[in-house]
Design a protein around this nucleic acid. Structure first.
Lengths: 151, 151
DNA sequence: CTAGGAGCTAGAGCCGGCTCTAGGTCAACC
DNA sequence: GGTTGACCTAGAGCCGGCTCTAGCTCCTAG
């Protein structure tokens, strides 16, 4: 039913993951792959579908801020096979926590930015309504330092 | 009414912002401050409340991924004074968009991580229920590469 | 009067994560 | 049979963002 999948070249994997060939080799060298990438004629890398699947998980973990060493630790655990699931779970949970925290922080930041955008929009509205009178030193941000003002 | 605020030392600012004194000098050199930091006796930096206020905004923008050059551009605009509010707004809006995008991405990542945590929790539950039988090659992640499996 | 401690400048160093280069192999095409 | 193009390895380089060092100046306390 399933053909003996030919394996993808590094270029193909780069194309479909969005990573550069450099990054792919770098990741391999950093040990983030679970199984060693097979080699074809002339020592060329031949990626299996599983490799690519794993890679896409890695990409998501990276995108959520997991550092390469952690990714390698995870790969090490999976490579070691069944029996260390608690450790994998712990690793994932820890990362989950960090991502959650980061989401919270980012949301707070977004609130401030949204607020400041609002302030400037209002300001510009008022400029427009009041026939172009950009009053100096007014806005969400004070141009120069004055003794005791804040916003 | 307001005393002529004495100004804070770099150490004090470091302490209350969480930045290092190194980072503070670095930021200054990078031009992220709106007004030049005044100097006291012996050339020591003396930060005003406004400086610190601005800094806290900067910290939030940094935390949301705004690169230092963008921060400097923003500071440049504010320093230039009234009249460029559209540019400031554009800059903020652009950053707002990037943060929103990043929030979306991060949320997606979190979904995957949550899913995987769930998979491993179920797995461990089943191990526990089934009197310790860690069946090889089962889990959210496949230890070795097999012809045609995915999850 | 000397020893600390905080600050100063200029510049080097570091870390994570790629990215690029040099120099080479191989297969395929014209 | 020469050129192109994709790949290989090893290792250098780069970028952002700090962080640290060296060598100095002050001020204050003991």
């Amino acid at each position: 039913m399933a053909e003996v999948t030919a394996g993808l070249s590094i270029g193909q994997v780069a194309e479909r993951t969005g990573l550069s060939v450099h990054a792919l080799r770098f990741y391999e060298q950093q040990g983030v792959f679970v199984s060693p990438i097979r080699r074809g004629v002339g020592g060329r890398r031949s990626y299996s579908e599983d490799d690519v699947d794993w890679l896409t998980v890695c990409i998501i973990l990276r995108a959520s801020g997991m550092p390469l060493p952690a990714l390698r630790r995870y790969a090490d655990l999976v490579r070691a096979g069944a029996g260390n699931e608690e450790e994998r779970l712990a690793l994932l949970k820890e990362h989950h926590g960090r991502v959650t925290t980061q989401l919270g922080r980012l949301t707070q930041c977004l609130d401030l930015i949204t607020f400041k955008v609002g302030v400037y929009e209002d300001l510009l509205d008022r400029y427009a309504a009041g026939r172009d009178r950009p009053r100096p030193s007014v806005g969400g941000d004070v141009p120069a330092s004055r003794p005791g003002t804040s916003a």
